[in-house]
Amino acid sequence: QEPLTASMLAAAPPQEQKQMLGERLYPLIHSLHPSMAGKITGMLLEIDNSELLLMLESPESLHSKIEEAVAVLQVHQISEASHKSN
């Protein structure tokens, strides 16, 4: 698969741009967190496209963002669970 470039993205309509980025991010996220991959990808797609492109080029920054998303999700799930039990 050829690398995604800023000019390729710019040529696509905005909604498709997120889909294109998601298609690149999803397999990487799925290899780390299979059960939460769709959710994590959705969270990361709210970040600016330019920043997402940088992450695709830098596995280290992508990984730290993925771990951040996992942490946010876990806190969210715990707070949801405690709301239900109260």
Binding site: G22, E23, L25, Y26, P27, G38, K39, T41, G42, M43, L44, L45, E46, I47, K65, E68, A69, A71, V72, L73, V75, H76, Q77
Partner: peptide, 23 residues
């Protein structure tokens, strides 16, 4: 620092072609 990530974000649905290996 507080995370800017939103836990209520819409889930991403990958295209079927990507997932076909798992189905």
């Amino acid at each position: 620092k507080k995370s800017t990530l939103n836990p209520n974000a819409k889930e991403f649905n990958p295209s079927k072609t990507l997932l076909s290996v798992n189905k």
